[in-house]
């Protein structure tokens, strides 16, 4: 377990470093995936196998694919694709004739749009480093000053009584035969927690996801003739 943890520790550091340093979006996504996979390893080493599997399924399986798809739709692979770094008002400008980004027009637009008041407020990258480092220092200090019972994890009960919700000490054989005895972190223990402990929260989240699905469909749909609120793509793409 401890070996798994340290491997996951190092791999997730590498993954997150990839994510924040790579210019190319697909490589950054790869870093994110690595970090997620390593987090699943951390969950496993913390006796949470169900969460580990959900992590792989939801993040690595579903979310990463969604990111890839949107990258494909928007055709913006790198930071440079969306504009020059470090300057405001430098978004891509499109040539109405060809429908592709035009460097010449963009330069002109940049000149026009460079307003002194705004360009003064642009935050440079070092400032981002400073803020996040300050945050890390604060967090680390908090963690270091935690009380001493956070020095190690206590022993787990060998199984929970799934009916009385109490920790009980049973032998491994008993755990295999008695259906009401649930080990820590098992799928059944987690699902009992969901449905017997927090059914309302569970239902509310299902509503939230439903709303998100509706919202995503509404936001991403194309222009529909006669339905107000949808953008006419053809008309607006000319002057981005």
């Amino acid at each position: 377990m401890i070996a798994l943890f340290w491997i996951s520790f190092i791999v997730s550091l590498v993954g997150s470093a990839l994510l924040i340093t790579q210019k190319h979006a697909v490589y950054a996504l790869l870093g994110l995936l690595i970090a997620f996979g390593a987090s699943a390893g951390v969950f496993l080493s913390l006796d949470a196998p169900f969460i580990a599997v959900s992590q792989i399924l939801i993040y690595a399986g579903a979310l990463a694919v969604m990111f890839l798809f949107v990258l494909m739709f928007t055709d913006t692979r790198t930071e440079e694709d969306v504009g020059l770094p470090g300057a405001v008002g430098s978004r891509a400008v499109f040539d109405p004739a060809t429908g592709r980004p035009s460097k010449k027009k963009k330069k002109k637009a940049d000149e026009e749009e460079k307003k002194p008041a705004l360009s003064g407020m642009v935050m440079p990258k070092p400032m981002a480093v400073a803020v996040s480092l300050a945050l890390l220092v604060c967090f680390t200090a908090t963690i270091v000053t935690l009380p001493s019972d956070y020095n190690r994890f206590g022993p787990l009960p060998s199984a929970y009584d799934g009916i009385n919700f109490e920790g009980v000490e049973r032998s491994a054989d008993q755990i295999k035969t008695d259906p009401n005895l649930l080990p820590f972190g098992s799928t059944e223990a987690v699902s009992r927690t969901i449905f017997e402990g927090f059914p309302l929260a569970f239902e509310v989240v299902s509503l939230l996801i439903f709303a998100a699905v509706l919202g995503a469909v509404l936001l991403a749909r194309r222009h529909l003739v006669g339905i107000p609120g949808t953008q006419d793509v053809a008309k607006e793409s000319g002057h981005a």
Binding site: M121, V131, L135, C138, T142
Partner: peptide, 21 residues
């Protein structure tokens, strides 16, 4: 600019955690 709001949010987080500490 989205970034300016994000900065406000991050700085606020730093201040809050420092206060908590």
């Amino acid at each position: 600019y989205v970034r300016h709001y994000l900065y406000a949010f991050a700085v606020g987080m730093v201040v809050l955690s420092a206060l908590f500490l």
